[in-house]
Amino acid sequence: MEKKNSFHKFMSIPGMASVLTAFVGVVILMIIFTFMNPNFISQRNLVPLSRSICPYLLVGIGQGIVCITGNIDLSIGSVLGMSAMISATLICNGVNPILALVITIIACLAVGVVNGVLVGKFKLPPFIGTLGTMTICRGLAEIVNGNYNTGDIGTSGMATAIRDIFYYGKVGFIYYGVIVSLIIWFVFNYIMNYTRTGRHIYAIGSNVDAARLSGVDVFKTTTVAYLISAFCSCIAGFITMAAAGMGSMQAGLSYEMYGVAAAVIGGISTLGGSGLLVGTIAGASVWAILQNGLTLANVPVAIRNIVIGVIVVACVLLDIMRRNGVKLGKKK
């Protein structure tokens, strides 16, 4: 009896139903792909798969939080590229790798501040404001090494450590990169659910006027959201850079949209005010599993893209239909 009650309470958390749906989706996808190719469920496939979820999860967290404020961040992919290019260029030019990462983080956070000022202070439509920074940052990513990809970051102790921490190293079956991503997720999940800042992020996404009149600093809160987004893209950039062992000017292309997909599949509304960060884990997994599963099932790349697109739209459509159903039922 009590168990049923606590389950009921759990389900009544706003947004929890969407999150649960997304996790059920993950399981269903895994079952389907296992049928298509039994190798999918093998340890040899799943362990690296866990690693490939990480960049999607990070951009999903960033984009998800910005979406909860009712905005969007189009600069995510470019910031990711910038992060990979700046850090790799610095390391290749002999800068201490730790210092290189710190400098890169600062540069990426600066982009977050610019986004926050444009959208939060000067009230630019977020789509336009971050479209601008998206283009600028891609340009910076290209210019930083004179319009070439960087060379290999080398095998010095610290460079190897960076490769290990973000991508190659593992303890048991778990990659360090996965641990790093989960720690970041944990921190921001805590902020969103248990701190004043998180509460204000939800509030401005729900009703920005009400929030302002209640004394919420809308500019500051918007900027914090964009800072989180820039930080997550930056770490995702490190992962990409560590995986390749170099900086690629193409790194992070379209990742802002992967972020939207991960957030939305995980039940975060692009209209703001609602959604739980835990959903991004399911959302990012769906995305990575689709890529991986369809490859294993020998589906050609072009078809793969079409299938993924259809599934994403279907996910969101289902969610909207389910929500409208609930709403109508309540009204009556």
Binding site: P14, R199, Y202, A203, S206, N207, A210, A211, S214, G215
Partner: peptide, 17 residues
Amino acid sequence: NMCQHLTVANNMFLGRE
């Protein structure tokens, strides 16, 4: 002027949590 997505208590304490 309410945040429709937030709870009753959250709305009452908005800005002074």
